[in-house]
Write a protein that binds this DNA or RNA. Structure first.
Ligand SMILES: [Zn+2]
Ligand SMILES: [Zn+2]
Ligand SMILES: [Zn+2]
Ligand SMILES: [Zn+2]
Lengths: 174, 174
DNA sequence: TACAATTTTGTTATGATATAACAAGTAAAA
DNA sequence: TTTTACTTGTTATATCATAACAAAATTGTA
């Protein structure tokens, strides 16, 4: 499998605003996945591996049924449980994130580091950028703890207008 | 309509950790809703008003179809558009919030002040507490702006264990 | 009032997202 | 090899949400 396209990637803290070859991302993500699964005695089966790859190949978060359609095209079973099982596995392995406000799934470039997925979601182009912000994480933990609340998971999804789309709309108004 | 029950409320910044009469909350929320709608030339019709009331009467975020069932019991139309229209109205009027990670709806006690809804969601009892944190809001805006991203909406949903449930589980283990 | 314009609601159908339940197959462990 | 655990296949269904168009109610205007 070759990954031909190059684009601006969505992982701010690893290669912020740099154009790069997305193939490398996919390959790295897949290698990381193999390693992590091996380490944890988890089985990255064909359908799970291909699901992860397809999610990475999409430049935007992918819906479960979109993914299911792609898998079906390739001869995998086309019933919903197939894709939801794969997604569940990838989610619990930390290899992907779910963007709750979009009901869609996104590859994580930092699966090897336990972390919360924080997202910037563009209303216009629907690109999603994952960002990492320890300050906010710490502040949230502290804030929650102050109320006696023990934090387990965080859904931080910020929507608005990305830099590119803001430029475009500014150009259109000029 | 009488509101009989008393419980710990979910609006941290208005009456943090205080036991109080929820009836008052509902009444206040409804009054605020009437006022806001009047000011903005919006019509708080019977079904919209009753939907808001039912959402407030629930101690947890209410799903659209749960709400629909309650409305249907009272003689309102029982087709989905009825409830989604009411929800859309209440959402855009800022009278309720949607909890994305639960697909459920929650009354807002601060409808008169424009704000983002930040939530602490207990995994155990499913109570949801709205909290207000200007520091985090400011930090998020700044963080996004730093990437050229113009923030429009925020989904901040923190899940974990609330103080009460933490106590309970500690007691069980003792 | 009568009329038109606007908004709201009724109704039917369908789309989109996700899970339950149980059978069959496959891989790992004993 | 036999057992066990895990994974996948299959059918059905649950849950969440919207499209499209008709009917009714409300509001503004003459
Ligand atoms: Zn991540
Ligand atoms: Zn954009
Ligand atoms: Zn609020
Ligand atoms: Zn709790």
């Amino acid at each position: 499998m070759k990954h031909e396209d190059s684009h601006q990637h969505s992982q701010q803290d690893s290669h912020q605003h740099s154009h790069h070859n997305h193939n490398d991302c996919i390959d790295t993500a897949l290698e990381t996945a193999e390693t992590l699964c091996a380490e944890q005695g988890q089985r990255l089966t064909k359908v799970r591996r291909r699901a992860l790859e397809l999610i990475w190949e999409s430049h935007r978060p992918l819906g479960a049924y979109q993914l299911l359609a792609k898998l079906a095209e390739e001869g995998f079973n086309s019933a919903p449980p197939t894709v939801y099982r794969a997604l569940d596995f990838l989610l619990s392995a930390g290899l992907i994130h779910k963007v709750e406000s979009m009901n869609a799934y996104l590859g994580c470039a930092h699966a090897d580091k336990a972390h919360k997925g924080y997202f910037l979601i563009c209303d216009e182009c629907h690109n999603v950028m994952e960002f990492d912000y320890q300050d906010i994480h710490a502040a949230l933990i502290e804030k929650a703890a102050h109320q006696g609340f023990e934090l387990r998971a965080e859904t931080i999804e910020l929507t608005g207008l990305c830099a590119k789309c803001k430029e475009k709309s500014a150009g259109a108004n000029a």
